[in-house]
Amino acid sequence: MGETLRTDTVVVGLGAMGSQALWHLARRGVPTVGVEQFVPGHDRGSSHGESRIIRTAYVEGAEYVPFVRAAWERWADLEQASGQELLLRTGALMAGAPDSGAVSGALTAASHHALEHEHLSPEQAQARFPHHRFAPGEEAVVEQEGGVLLPEAAIGAAVRLAGEAGARVLTEAPVTRIVPDPEQPTVWMGGTEIRARRVVVAAGSWTTRLLPQLPDLGIRVERRVLGWFPITGAPEPHTGGQVFARDEADGTLWFGFPSLDGRTVKIGVHSEAPGARFPGAQWGEPVDPDTGPRAPDTADGARLGLLAARLDGVATTPERMSACMYTMTPDEDFLIGHRAELPGLVLAGGFSGHGFKFASAVGAALADLAEHGRTDLPIDMFDPQRQ
């Protein structure tokens, strides 16, 4: 015989966004059940790998800046509530040709929102950051409002606090079906049924599997690889540096972190232009989320090693690598809100490889939408009906 549970709100998926939504709902006193198919902080999705970047002069568009600022405030709330350090404030460096997205996008966002920043000439950039090997003519933008988020710790803290506030947390509980309904949507886990007033779906790469009613939004799941490269020179520039994003002349946008362990530097590729030096395989390769991305190989290491060579005092062979998934929308903007064909559900998905930094604000917005049907947070550009 199956079991029937009843609650006000169910949160499906306790990764970056769902864990935050669960905490915000629970701290407000909303009866909530959180359901996770693995264990919070797992490495099967898109929210692992020890570190994530947060930056404010947003390369992807000035319209994101108010939402980043809202996220900074709510990350501080989570740190205070948990008593844990979850965000390391390092500042951020964006570098590339003057017309590159990393430089021009950061300058546009900084100018539009009057963000404190520095615009460095090629000579100034190389003098300030000698551990970066800049190509001739490359400029840099530096801002103080940047840093490193600790994803596994943040997810664990939010889930723990949610449980302490009264949320029921079900782990290793795969959801098999979600039934939309304007009054009583239902979540099924095998023979167990959860009836609720609202369901928040934050299932990451599994979103379209669980919601086959969705029209073809062009959502795709892609493989990415991260590499940790040993420091071979003086560690100080790499242990005390900034998070960074760099635009290469061939269209590659890559990123990196100051060393968190004192031995290695983590880097990854966000995107490449078609026809770049290592097309296909790592960037754009489709992934079945149930199977997961294939393990990193020597070709991945070689590709990342070419980028590691742009850092002074860092080896070009990785000590280790990790694969993860990007869940992409066609415009690379997020999906946060309601869709007419999914009554009773609140959707969060398509975070396109740059969403983790917003998770604290996304969670608050999802809680608002589930509780009140609206939010004052700036999410209009993420309306799922735009697709």
Rank of each mutant, 00 (worst) to 15 (best):
H112L: 06
S121C: 03
M381D: 04
A361W: 06
R52A: 02
L253G: 05
G218S: 08
G373E: 00
G146Q: 04
D181M: 00
E332H: 15
A26W: 04
D300K: 11
V65Q: 01
A370L: 08
V35C: 11
L87Y: 11
G363R: 03
A71K: 06
G83E: 10
R294Q: 07
D383N: 15
T291E: 08
A76E: 13
D312Q: 12
T32E: 13
E36D: 10
A97W: 05
F67R: 06
P237K: 02
F278V: 12
P378I: 12
R168T: 15
R310W: 02
D43A: 10
L86I: 05
W188T: 04
A234V: 10
Q126T: 12
A162C: 04
H113L: 08
R55L: 07
S100A: 10
F129P: 09
R69G: 05
E152C: 08
Q144F: 07
G227K: 03
Q144C: 04
L25G: 08
E63K: 06
E341C: 05
A167Y: 11
T207I: 06
M381Y: 01
D77V: 14
V33K: 09
M94V: 07
Q242P: 05
F382I: 02
K357Q: 14
E236G: 07
G301E: 02
L345N: 03
R294I: 05
A315C: 10
E3I: 13
V159Q: 01
E332W: 04
A157P: 04
D333R: 14
R246G: 03
S51I: 02
A165H: 15
F67C: 01
V142R: 14
P215S: 09
V269R: 12
A196D: 09
P136D: 13
V65C: 02
G190E: 13
L78T: 01
I53S: 00
P66Q: 00
Q84N: 03
E248T: 15
F382W: 00
P180V: 00
L260H: 07
G105A: 02
E60K: 05
S352Q: 11
P235A: 02
L335W: 07
D288E: 12
E152M: 10
S19P: 10
D77Y: 00
E236F: 14
W228L: 04
V33M: 13
L170V: 14
L217M: 14
A202R: 13
D250F: 04
L226Q: 12
G91C: 02
S121W: 03
R263G: 10
G301V: 07
P274L: 13
T7L: 06
Y58F: 11
M381K: 06
E319M: 12
E139S: 05
Q20T: 07
D333C: 03
Q126V: 14
E138W: 08
E73P: 01
F38D: 12
H338K: 14
G350H: 02
G233K: 03
P258R: 06
T208Y: 04
W254D: 06
R44D: 10
Q144P: 11
A16Y: 02
